[in-house]
Design a protein around this nucleic acid. Structure first.
Length: 202
DNA sequence: CGCCCGATGTGCT
DNA sequence: GCACATCGGGCGT
């Protein structure tokens, strides 16, 4: 399986958030930190779209916390929640319209020893199969909020990765929305492939 | 493996 | 004061 390492440029993010979420599946998320490379293939992502989407942080309007989502596309929006967890998102276009893609799962490919230690030696399947698990494994927090994802040697960036075959991509409603009203609760804005699907590609 | 629930603290009403 | 785009331990199956 060929994993391409050219960095996606800013224009990749400057379109409909649902399209960005779809096309992020199979890409390579890279974290460079004091000389080491941690990376994985993106398996799962969700779109959050504008102030009218009642599941999106921007539904309360622009605040200090969610301001990054209103900025230009291609930057990381990293926020803190549940008193202990960080979440990694990719801001999408157009500028001024608040939208972002939450990364929910990756398949680790680089830096497995370090990821294992950060994840407290848990089983490999549990390393990065959740949004806060990704940020734990890759050491992401507020320091990297508003970081560009499209810089060639950026500390956090997304590369071309692998091609997901037509028909492999699955969708579902978004996870963890609680009492969010319809139609937002059921919007099929979660895009994903399984670890097994990727491993079967060889 | 699945369900349940407590942890933990910040932003926003 | 409360909700929160979650996680992991404990216990039952």
């Amino acid at each position: 399986m060929v994993i391409l390492k050219s960095v996606l440029d800013q224009s990749f993010y400057d379109r409909e958030v649902t399209d960005v979420a779809r096309y992020l599946i199979g890409r390579r998320l890279v974290r460079k930190s004091n000389g080491t490379t941690l990376a994985g293939i993106i398996l799962e992502a969700e779109a959050y779209r504008g102030e009218e989407d009642l599941a999106c942080h921007a539904h309360v309007g622009k605040t200090k916390r969610n301001a990054v989502m209103y900025g230009p596309s291609g930057y990381a929006y990293i926020y803190f929640t549940y008193g202990m967890h960080w979440m990694l998102n990719c801001v999408t276009g157009p500028e001024g319209f608040p939208a972002a893609v939450l990364l929910r799962s990756i398949l680790p490919t680089d830096g497995l020893q370090i990821i294992a230690s950060r994840r407290h030696q848990r089983s490999p399947k549990e390393w990065c199969n959740g949004p806060a698990k990704i940020t734990q494994a890759l050491d992401l927090d507020s320091r990297l909020n508003n970081t560009p994802l499209f810089h060639q040697n950026g500390a956090l960036r997304i590369e071309e990765g692998i091609r997901i075959p037509e028909g492999m991509l699955q969708t579902s409603p978004r996870i963890g929305l609680g009492d969010t009203p319809e139609p937002w609760l059921s919007k099929p804005w979660r895009y994903f492939v399984t670890t097994e699907q990727i491993e079967s590609m060889n």
